[in-house]
Computed example of a mutant assay.
Amino acid sequence: MTQDPFVTHRSLLFTVAYEMLGSAADAEDVLQESWLRWAGVDRARVSDPRAYLVRTVTRQSLNRLRTLARSREDYVGEWLPDPLLTTPDVAEDVELAENISIAMLTVLETLGPTERAVFVLREVFELPYDEIAGALGKSAAAVRQTARRAREHVAARRPRVRVSRSEQQAVVERFLLALRTGELEALVEIMAPDVVLIADGGGLAPAALAPVHGVDLVAQVLARAAGVTATAVWLNGAPAGRIEIDGELATAVSLVVEEGRISRVYLMRNPRKLTRLDEPVPLAT
Rank of each mutant, 00 (worst) to 15 (best):
A91L: 06
P113D: 05
E115F: 03
I100F: 10
F119N: 06
P128F: 13
V124M: 05
P128D: 12
P128A: 07
E95R: 14
G112D: 09
E115H: 07
F119G: 07
L111T: 05
V120H: 00
E115G: 15
A91D: 04
V120E: 01
F119K: 03
E98F: 07
E98T: 06
L108K: 03
E123C: 02
A117H: 08
F125P: 01
E115N: 14
V90K: 02
G112P: 06
R122I: 14
L108E: 10
L105H: 09
I132C: 03
L108Y: 15
S101W: 00
I100T: 11
V94P: 04
R122W: 08
L96A: 03
A103P: 15
V124Y: 05
R116A: 02
T110L: 13
I102H: 04
L108G: 09
A103T: 09
E92H: 02
D93N: 12
A117R: 06
L111Q: 04
E126G: 08
A103G: 09
L108S: 08
R116Q: 09
E123G: 04
Y129F: 15
L105Y: 04
L108P: 10
D89K: 00
E126T: 10
V107Q: 14
A97F: 03
L105Q: 07
T106D: 09
V118F: 00
I132E: 00
N99I: 06
R116T: 03
D89M: 00
Y129P: 03
A117Q: 10
E92N: 04
E109M: 13
E109L: 11
A117W: 02
L127Y: 12
L111M: 10
P113Q: 05
E109S: 13
E123M: 07
D130C: 03
V120M: 00
I102E: 08
V107H: 12
I102C: 12
S101M: 03
D93G: 06
T106S: 13
E92G: 03
R116N: 06
I132S: 00
P128K: 14
I100N: 05
A103S: 13
E92P: 04
R122F: 09
R116K: 15
V94K: 13
F119I: 08
T106A: 05
E115Y: 06
A97D: 03
E109W: 15
V118Y: 01
R122E: 15
V94D: 07
D89E: 15
V118N: 02
L121V: 05
E123D: 13
N99C: 06
V94Y: 11
N99F: 04
R122A: 13
R122K: 15
V118D: 01
D89Q: 01
Y129T: 14
V107R: 08
I100R: 10
L105D: 02
L108D: 08
V120F: 02
L108N: 04
A103W: 10
T110N: 08
E98W: 04
L105S: 13
G112F: 01
E95L: 15
E126V: 12
T110W: 05
G112A: 09
A103H: 10
T114C: 05
L96E: 01
E95P: 06
F125M: 15
E98N: 11
V124P: 01
N99G: 12
E92F: 04
N99S: 14
G112M: 03
V120Q: 00
D130N: 14
Y129Q: 15
D89P: 00
T114Q: 11
V107Y: 09
P113I: 08
F119H: 14
